[in-house]
Design a protein around this nucleic acid. Structure first.
Lengths: 135, 135
DNA sequence: GTAGCTGCAAACTCTTTGCAACTCT
DNA sequence: AGAGTTGCAAAGAGTTTGCAGCTAC
């Protein structure tokens, strides 16, 4: 099921602008900033405004259809894949790679429990440099 | 060795304002925001300005004497303990607890290596709710 | 003496919002 | 018809910066 269908289910009105933004998000395979979503949407419909992009992303975040992320930059990026996963950020290119790891999941919950807490949420970001293959 | 001594070593001039800000940081056992540092410093010397607090924290961050953090809030906080550690944030009170865990360290490096990266840096934040003791 | 530091206010960046017009349903 | 949505411009929050005067070294 795509974002447009899931939004309709939540009772959001399907305006032309909204459809375009959802299409842009559905087709994104990266972690776009608001600015990036705006640029891609504007290429499809020049009348879309920044304010609408912000409002739409805030709505989607509340509905948990996207996840707002903060990769040590001064603006937010959006994660369209809402499956539980973590990120490795290439410190040279800025590329973001997603990964999952069950051992880490178990360990996280155990650490929280040891400190007297139930784990509600969690964020793991690795920052790394690509290993050059020696020839 | 305290912050003032470490700053002097880096060739920073020890002005009255700077001494006060460093004292505030040395005595902080939390993860204060710029605003918090400013308030605490102002209580000791009313002439200190916000701009000086920002400039000082930026300097200290560059010298790696503090670490700028971003706990999903719209402002930065500063970590004065620069030993490697992670954070558990109490989702109800906002309290920040530091912890270390060698297994996680090893696993992080292994994950990065498997993805073809050398680990440069990393951020692990757990968000949890305090477990109520049953009576 | 001078490089570096300070306070102030203005500028900047990212994000949100009030408003009047418009549009899905 | 009416609630929800939009674009615009202005406002907000957090942070940075130009400048003229001041201060540690």
């Amino acid at each position: 099921m795509n974002l447009e269908q899931r939004c309709a289910e939540s009772g959001l009105k399907m305006t032309g602008q909204r459809k375009i933004i959802l299409k842009v998000l559905d087709e994104a395979d990266d972690h776009p900033s608001v600015e990036a979503v705006y640029e891609r949407a504007k290429a499809l419909d020049a009348t879309i405004s920044m304010a609408t992009v912000y409002r739409t992303l805030n709505l989607l975040d509340e509905l948990q259809l996207v996840i707002r992320r903060d990769f040590n930059e001064k603006f937010s990026r959006y994660d369209i894949n809402t499956d539980h996963h973590h990120h490795l950020i290439d410190v040279e290119s800025g590329e973001v790679i997603e990964f999952q790891n069950q051992e880490i999941e178990d360990m996280k919950a155990a650490i929280a429990r040891n400190l007297g807490y139930d784990l509600v949420e969690c964020k793991l970001e690795l920052y790394g440099r690509k290993i050059k293959k020696s020839s």
